[in-house]
Write a protein that binds this DNA or RNA. Sequence first.
DNA 1: TCAAGATTGATGCAGGTGCATCGAATGCGC
DNA 2: GCGCATTCGATGCACCTGCATCAATCTTGA
Lengths: 162, 162
Amino acid sequence: MKRKPSTEATAAWIRLMRVQSRVLDCVEQELKKAGFPPLAWYDALLELSRAPAGELRPVELERQMLIPQYSTSRLIDRLVEEGLVVRRECKMDKRGQFVEITEAGRELQKRMWSAYSAAIEKHVGSKLSDTDAAKLCMLLDRLGCSCGQAAPLAAGEGAATR
Amino acid sequence: MKRKPSTEATAAWIRLMRVQSRVLDCVEQELKKAGFPPLAWYDALLELSRAPAGELRPVELERQMLIPQYSTSRLIDRLVEEGLVVRRECKMDKRGQFVEITEAGRELQKRMWSAYSAAIEKHVGSKLSDTDAAKLCMLLDRLGCSCGQAAPLAAGEGAATR
DNA sequence: TCAAGATTGATGCAGGTGCATCGAATGCGC
DNA sequence: GCGCATTCGATGCACCTGCATCAATCTTGA
């Protein structure tokens, strides 16, 4: 008798949950031990540093990062507090604003990338051949295209996380 | 020139983070919409219902679920509050205690499983053939066996999450 | 047998997150 | 041009989490 979610599907679900939480924990711990802020900060700084003039509307950032609006708002608060970004008024739309990365922000993003990339290599790269990593990507991508479309995800350095 | 974390590894990392967070969100939302408590409650109830006498030491639960000690302690508080489990003293070790699932707890676990399994089917099963799901498992397992050994994970219904 | 150290579980505190809601500004339809 | 729905971003509140630490008990080794 065939079960509704097959044993294989259920097992895949379990692995997906457990493995990512474990790997994420490891990577975040390494960043923290190296004295860096949480990954979400990196993601935001990376998006900003890649944006045309180093600035984005909060609403753009929100879409890029797949986090809720209030979460974006408070993340920006913290980044401002640390001098990594500045809020600039938006003359086109007076409800809105621009968030612009500062030099300190760009610099932190670069410094974080060295720790971050080392952690990715340690916890992912070193465990999987490139072709297996590519296979994994394809399989995961097939799960991704539900509940909203997959984010753009330009190549190059990694933007990720919750 | 070869980069340290290869493009493939980085892409796999990004997918892993994004896809699981998206899929987890979807599944949790469906449980919530159906009026059920968070997944962590299910996991705890499942572990307890599978345990020999329907009871475990908090410290066992903690190891099964891969969550920190204080988190287990407070989760149990909430389950007790809802009458899903009871704390029983442990005569062998007076520091400790046993947590025993109640009938209400067993019943909730079963009711949650129908919603949960439907969600797994919808967000995982329906998107992947069984053989692809099995491949995904194998690839994920290769990432899992670092920073502490993989949890036992008996077959059957799913225990998972953060 | 007794002191030192390890283990079990709880908790105060600071901070993060989700939810609902708010005020301001915009745009759309008429 | 006017009003109403929508969008943008902030925030009060409740709750959850991580961290550090605590008290109680158990274990170990001299």
